[in-house]
Design a protein around this nucleic acid. Structure first.
Lengths: 352, 352
DNA sequence: TTGTATGCGTTATCAA
DNA sequence: TTGATAACGCATACAA
């Protein structure tokens, strides 16, 4: 029997069984730690499995047990993924958590001519995944609506406008931006502008709401032209900020709250380019906690979120959903962490 | 027979067959367009499949055909993924290309306590993937060495030091940085510094070599302290540049070539912070083509690479490798595209 | 405590 | 042109 180490012949349970003089059923149960197997046999089987390099075939196991143990992640359809520096971190956290439980992460993109629903459908229909994680949630989100109806387990990273009946993990963007406004007002800022993002993306909408609500609550005055939507990256931020700077010095904002760090960087560039000084003339505040924020001059005051941990927690949630199918959805709200640095100062530039 | 639309009962080939009064084998062959099926039958089967919402079970199909049709991607083990703005784009391109051929992309991360080899082993051993794509290739790379030995199909995005006997797609980093040096020298720069990255990552090493080789070829003089390694992000770039600026004005570089755009941004910050003006006093050049480069002031001269297209091409390569198992490896070298903007000028600041 | 038999859903081989 | 039948590798109910 020289079949032991013969190359390229995958070692299956049947081979193991023959090699050990046992039946396939016994070997299978020994490997899966069934209680009705003699301790001695179990040891012997597991030792042989290790030595011969036995690896269970996931297709066969899935077919037999009717399980999938794979989570699907459909990449958001934004052409320029550079604008989402979190995806890689979230994927990393998600994959890490899943792998702890021997689950897999299947990443799919949306080919031209198809939409996200088609892709979800295909993955779920052919039994490739048992649940989904979605990111970049929009206020009105086809994916969420579809998944909700379909009954498939899923976790959204970010809520929609109607978030009651499904599981999600979100940052409390509204609270974060209310905190930001309070922080600025406590320092003496009365004229606070806001550079908002794509208002169909809920995170941007929530941040916008936080700004508006805090300004209203605190009797703040939102000057003409203080609120600019659709600022999604450094370049559009640069141009939006230039528009802000055309306001007469009397009415010009003393602080600009930015929907993301990327937008904040663009705003800083515009201010410097106009011959003004960030922090002394205008304070800038962002959101994300990107590493670049520590390197710009002055360092960027921001609100920090840990994408890797978000990914891990989302992983825990989808695992729970897929394995325990709980009746009530899990909804988790995390607080962002205010990180004061030098780009925010008292109006007029007196150190805080 | 009211079994047709009954919910939650997955429609299998067997159900289809019963519903049509055919045998399972015939249905299977009809669905897979075997030539020995009557045209009329084929139509009838495919119509019914569509109506009843038949989706082949991928586990079963894989088990029966002994195929996998899945590519594995092991996320590079860098703690801070923000520092790699390409991953998401490469994944997107890769997944797009794979999905065109109904292949899947399995993304795995490396849990603490394991190494990349363990993960590769596990994925390949249990028949979860039929090949690998790896990124962030190091000059000496365990993954490449292991995969090479194992005989598993794989494509590396980026070469190792010994790139002869496997398939890869790489940017011609050395040529790119030689071009960059030529570009700067043609403008009149003689004193050119280089901020290099992690020299164990081959892309950084190649760029470093390009700089050194071009400087040597063109009889350039590399001043003391002109070459700084280990600059990996904006913050370390900021500090490295401050060191450059301590050089006496006589010997100070008139241009700084940066291993990445992120590093270039940090360098620009340091220069501005020191009261100097980028482009007029010191020219800055990066590599990547990040969107932020268009927004900084002055806009960043850079070398551009299209990560999405890199991902797609790598996808084509791994598909070819897995399906045709060609004898010779495919090795592809792409040129980066020089993108002149305002951050580079003649020394002394006279417009080019 | 172990062996036998059957099934998961699909494909493939062989008859009819 | 179609229908049985037997795999693929594993898990499990039941018999021994």
């Amino acid at each position: 029997m020289s079949e032991l180490q013969s190359r390229n012949v995958p070692v299956t349970i049947a081979r193991l069984a023959r090699h050990l003089g046992l039946s396939a059923g016994t070997v299978s149960r020994a490997l899966n730690n069934y209680p009705d197997i003699a301790e001695k046999t179990r040891k012997r089987v597991q030792k042989a499995a290790l030595e011969l390099g036995y690896r269970p075939s996931s297709s066969a196991r899935r077919l037999a047990r009717g399980i999938i143990e794979t989570v699907g992640f459909v990449l958001p359809t934004t052409r320029n993924q550079h604008s989402d520096p979190f995806l890689a971190e979230i994927l990393n956290g998600l994959a890490s958590e899943l792998s702890l439980h021997d689950w897999d992460l299947l990443v799919a993109s949306v080919p031209k001519g198809q939409n996200e629903i088609d892709v979800i459908n295909r993955l779920a229909g052919s039994g490739k995944v048992s649940g989904f994680v979605i990111a970049r949630t929009r206020r009105e989100d086809d994916r969420v609506n579809y998944l909700r109806k379909s009954g498939l387990p899923f976790v959204a990273q970010g809520r929609t406008d109607t978030p009651d009946d499904y599981s999600w993990l979100d940052i409390d963007n509204e609270q974060a931006f209310m905190d930001a406004v309070s922080y600025l007002r406590d320092l003496g800022h009365a004229k606070i502008a806001f550079l908002g993002g794509d208002p169909t993306l809920n995170f941007a909408w929530q941040r916008r709401n936080g700004y508006l609500r805090a300004m209203a609550d605190q009797n703040g005055h939102i000057g003409v032209g203080y609120l600019i939507d659709g600022v999604t990256d450094e370049l559009s931020a640069f141009h939006a900020t230039r528009r802000l700077l055309t306001i007469t010095e009397q009415d010009r904002p003393t602080a600009i709250l930015c929907v993301t760090d990327a937008v904040a960087i663009g705003a800083m560039q515009a201010i410097t380019h106009a011959g003004l000084t960030v922090s002394r003339d205008i304070s800038i505040m962002g959101f994300d906690g990107l590493p670049i924020g520590e390197a710009v001059q002055p360092a960027l005051t921001t609100l920090h979120q840990d994408s890797y941990e978000i990914g891990r927690e989302v992983g825990r949630m989808i695992l729970d959903l897929c394995t325990n199918s709980p009746s009530a959805p899990t909804q988790t709200l995390w607080q962002a962490k205010l990180t004061p640095r030098a780009s925010v100062n008292r109006p007029g530039g007196n150190p805080a």
